[in-house]
């Protein structure tokens, strides 16, 4: 890590934020196209070549629509709830490393906004704040469907936040750090299993944690099949029933950015982040690797949505507490034991 002037950090953060926003816009395009392909449809085709301008058209539409506020709504909370979701989603991206250091225009530029020594914890803490936006927005809407959606969101996020955190604890034990940059560095080492030498990606050493993380991440971001808070067919999109126009678009942005960030997070923690052949020498290669790794996760999200029916609320809780929670504890204990044994401290 090198020191760099504060304006440069701001510049990097600004670029990351804008890339995320554009990425979010094209995430919707990607989702619609993939979903369309899976459902034997065309998807957006009319706006621009192959519908490429569709996200922009959607954005303009959302911004120019009438902003409706229910008479019974709690106005201030109603105003600020979507912002909580949006901000908490976008702030998490600050600690994601897109590489180590690049040499640009005669300067060494860090390819991350900041390197907190508790980066992973930061991601989970801030994304945990996002649920306040959902609960408050649901409550402030003064709509019973929203209220039910908000309650579901609260219960769901509390349960799955725990599992998400515990599934990563094994990685922290192995890496010995909570900083995402250090975890990425750790994964660039080689892991030798007998004659075989592979990259020390944590997906290989923590496969169970990876699966649990994936499930918990889907639940954490309220996506199908765990999209209970906004179940369209039961709760009429739940917590954002009463939201319209750009307030709705903040929820929308928040949800999709959360998806992208959690995918980035997953590829950083389990797939080695930007590491790959040649990424040490060419920083842009690392970004491309990270991009494709993230796409895998995003595709997985869309795939799930196209395939699976939705869980029921009690079943969702049952999975969290009866299945995933014991498994994740088991994973943690086994990882800790192995770690101690490798250090020779266990016996």
């Amino acid at each position: 890590m090198n020191d760099q002037p504060i304006w440069l950090t701001f510049l990097v953060a600004f670029i990351i934020m804008n890339v995320l926003l554009i990425g979010m816009a094209y995430m919707t395009y990607f989702e619609r196209k993939v979903l369309a392909a899976m459902q034997d449809r065309m998807g957006p085709t009319r706006t621009g070549p192959a519908g490429l301008l569709q996200p922009i058209a959607d954005g303009i539409k959302l911004l120019s629509k009438e902003d409706l506020i229910p008479r019974a709504a709690d106005k201030w909370v109603f105003f600020f709830a979507p912002l909580v979701v949006f901000v908490s989603a976008i702030v998490t991206a600050a600690v994601i490393p897109f590489g180590q250091t690049a040499h640009l225009f005669g300067r060494d530029v860090n390819l991350y906004a900041t390197d907190l020594n508790v980066g992973a914890l930061f991601v989970m803490a801030v994304s945990g704040i996002g649920v306040y936006g959902i609960i408050l927005g649901a409550w402030a809407s003064a709509n019973r469907f929203s209220l039910l959606g908000g309650l579901r969101a609260a219960a769901q996020v509390v349960s799955y936040e725990l599992i998400l955190g515990l599934s990563l604890a094994g990685i922290f034990l192995l890496a010995g750090s909570l900083s995402l940059r250090e975890i990425v560095l750790e994964q660039q080492q080689n892991l030798s299993i007998g004659p075989l030498e592979i990259k020390n990606w944590y997906i290989f050493s923590q496969p169970l944690a990876f699966v649990i993380f994936l499930i918990a991440a889907v639940a954490e971001t309220n996506r199908a099949p765990f999209d209970l808070p906004e179940a369209e067919t039961e709760l009429i999109s739940g917590f954002h029933t009463e939201y319209s126009a750009f307030r709705f678009s903040f929820y929308f942005l928040g949800e999709y950015i959360a998806m992208i960030v959690i995918s980035l997070f997953a590829s950083t923690l389990f797939l080695g982040g930007p590491s790959g052949p040649g990424s040490e020498s060419h920083w842009w290669l690392g970004i491309i690797y990270l991009f494709f790794k993230t796409i895998i996760f995003l595709f997985f999200y869309v795939w799930l949505r196209a395939t699976l029916p939705r869980f029921r609320y009690d079943q969702l809780m049952g999975i969290a507490w009866k299945v995933l929670f014991p498994l994740v504890l088991l994973n943690l204990v086994v990882t800790a034991a192995i770690r101690l044994a490798s250090d020779g401290k266990l016996f």
């Binding site: 979903l35 899976m38 459902q39 034997d40 449809r41 199908a224 099949p225 999209d227 179940a231 067919t233 039961e234 949505r305 196209a306 395939t307 699976l308 029916p309 939705r310 869980f311």
Partner: peptide, 13 residues
């Protein structure tokens, strides 16, 4: 029916 339960693609098929 499948759409109600959440299987989105089913209705289109």
């Amino acid at each position: 029916h499948a759409l109600d339960i959440g299987a989105l693609s089913m209705s289109l098929y």
